[in-house]
C-alpha cells in the first residue's frame, strides 16, 4: 500500500519484492516480469489502472502465489496506460495456477471491486475484497 514507484519497472519490483520476501520467488523472477513488458508492451494492463505482472513459470518460482502492490501514484506502463495497482503472479508450472488466476479475474471483472482497489486509502478494504486470492 502506498508503494513509491516512478516507472513500470519500479512498480513491478514493488509487487515482485513481496513474492521474494515471502520466499515464493527468486529476485530473478522480478527481472523476468519487467522484461516481459519491455519486450511486449503494456498488454499486462488487464483493466484501467490494474496490471497483472508475470513471467514464465518455472525455476525462479518456489510457490504459486499472487501479491499486490498499490502505488502511491499511477505510473505509465506504456502507451499512456496508467497503473495504480500491480499484481505480481508467480507459478511453479504451466497449469497449477489456473484456479487462483480465474478467481482473481472473476473478482476484477466486478467494477465495484476495481473501484475499491483503485481508490482505497488504506489496505484493509482491499484485503477484505481480495482475501480469497491474496491469501497468507
Amino acid at each position: 500500500m502506498g508503494a513509491a514507484a516512478n516507472n513500470f519497472a519500479e512498480a513491478i519490483t514493488a509487487a515482485g519484492e513481496l513474492l521474494v520476501e515471502a520466499g515464493h520467488a527468486k529476485p530473478e523472477y522480478i527481472r523476468a516480469m519487467i522484461q516481459v513488458v519491455e519486450e511486449l508492451g503494456p498488454y499486462i494492463v488487464i483493466a484501467d489502472g490494474i496490471a497483472l505482472a508475470h513471467a514464465a513459470p518455472g525455476d525462479n518460482v518456489m510457490k504459486n502465489s499472487i501479491a499486490l502492490a498499490v502505488l502511491e501514484k499511477s505510473v505509465d506502463f506504456g502507451s499512456g496506460k496508467m497503473v495504480k495497482a500491480v499484481f505480481a503472479m508467480a507459478a511453479t508450472d504451466h497449469d497449477s495456477h489456473i484456479e487462483s488466476l480465474g478467481d482473481l479475474a472473476a473478482l476484477l471483472a466486478d467494477a465495484q471491486i476495481r473501484t475499491v482497489l483503485l481508490t482505497a486509502v488504506e489496505s484493509q478494504p482491499i484485503e477484505l475484497v481480495l482475501a480469497s486470492v491474496l491469501g497468507e
Binding site: Y43, A55, A56, G102, A105
Partner: peptide, 16 residues
C-alpha cells in the same frame, strides 16, 4: 493469445 500463454491469455480464454 498473450505474451507467454499462461497469465493474461488464461483470463482472456475464461472470458471468451
Amino acid at each position: 493469445v498473450c505474451g507467454l500463454g499462461y497469465g493474461t491469455s488464461v483470463i482472456l480464454k475464461n472470458n471468451i
